[in-house]
Computed example of a mutant assay.
Amino acid sequence: MRTVESRNWYEKSFGEDYLLVYKHRNQHEADRFVQRVIEWLELPSGSRILDLCCGAGRHALGLANAGYRVTGVDLSSVLLQKAKEADSSGCVRWVEADMRALPQDGTLTNSFDAVVNLFTSFGYFETDREQLDVLKQIWMALKPGGRFVLDVLNAGYVQDHLVPFSQRKENGVVISESRVIQNGFVIKEIKVEEGGSRPRFYTERVKLYSPQDMENMLKETGFLLDVMSGSYDGEAYDERRSPRMIMLGHRNL
């Protein structure tokens, strides 16, 4: 019998099991996307980039290896520890913080030439106001005219291609994933079964936004949307056929 979980889903789900569930998302894949991000941003080497919701640091490290000064922010102490372990030369500054309320010590305010928020790290919260809080933090972190890359699910594609159930094995561990769209959120229930241990359960819950909804929120925050891409390969965006909605824009002066 499952017990009632008092924490928010994102406070529980991003731990050791997250690394197992998303083991197929490796550094090679991240480096390919980082190259595309670099092409989009068109920033010189040495520019300052904030990776907001950096997780275990795949993209932050790729950006640092390309010559940028990178800060990675995430709420998960487990994933940040993995990032630090991978950053043997200490080239990235790692900060534990909620993306709705970044530290107000001055080090993250009007400091960055670009902010990236990648791999479906937007839409975690119950209300649109909280999602706007995230965009406001991005605005505050950027220098005037600074650029952003926001990588979210494409609602039309998700609605047409949702896989209700899948199951696979990773290192002998059975991972079962059930998916449903409910009240505007795509919800994934994850069950991890390992040997004779009791199953472990996790939830992921992400708000689906239309392109117009996203553009309206960006404008309300003080951003201008320059380009929208539909995939990690840089394909043109299509509301039904594109797997991703990747927005490139900049902070109004």
Rank of each mutant, 00 (worst) to 15 (best):
R7P: 02
R7S: 15
N8E: 13
N8V: 10
W9F: 14
E11Q: 14
E11S: 10
E11G: 12
K12E: 14
K12P: 03
K12C: 09
S13P: 03
F14M: 03
G15R: 00
E16F: 06
D17Y: 02
D17Q: 03
D17F: 01
Y18T: 00
Y18Q: 01
L19F: 00
V21Y: 00
V21E: 00
N26V: 06
N26I: 09
N26M: 05
H28Y: 09
H28D: 15
E29G: 05
E29L: 09
D31P: 09
D31M: 15
R32N: 11
F33T: 06
R36F: 13
V37D: 02
V37N: 06
V37C: 13
I38V: 08
W40D: 02
L41K: 01
L41N: 01
E42S: 13
L43Y: 01
L43R: 00
P44E: 09
P44T: 04
S45T: 12
S47T: 07
R48W: 08
L50G: 08
L50R: 04
L52P: 10
C53R: 07
C53W: 06
C54P: 11
C54A: 14
G55Y: 00
G55I: 03
G57I: 12
G57E: 12
H59R: 04
H59E: 10
H59D: 08
A60H: 13
A60Y: 12
N65D: 15
A66V: 06
G67C: 11
G67H: 08
R69L: 13
V70L: 14
V70A: 14
T71E: 09
S76M: 06
V78N: 01
V78C: 02
V78R: 00
L79M: 12
L79P: 01
L79K: 00
L79D: 04
L80M: 11
L80Q: 02
Q81C: 00
K82H: 12
K84W: 04
E85D: 14
E85N: 10
A86V: 03
A86I: 04
G90H: 04
G90M: 05
R93V: 13
R93K: 13
R93S: 14
W94I: 12
V95N: 07
E96G: 08
A97E: 09
D98K: 14
M99C: 11
R100V: 12
A101Y: 07
Q104M: 11
Q104L: 13
D105H: 06
D105N: 15
D105K: 04
G106T: 10
L108A: 13
N110I: 02
N110A: 15
S111A: 15
F112I: 04
D113V: 03
A114H: 04
V116T: 13
N117T: 10
L118Q: 02
T120P: 02
S121R: 07
F122P: 00
F122V: 05
F122C: 06
G123W: 03
Y124W: 14
E126H: 14
E126C: 12
T127W: 03
D128A: 09
R129T: 06
R129E: 15
E130Q: 15
Q131D: 15
L132C: 08
D133W: 04
W139I: 05
W139M: 09
M140W: 03
M140E: 15
M140N: 14
A141I: 05
L142W: 05
K143Q: 15
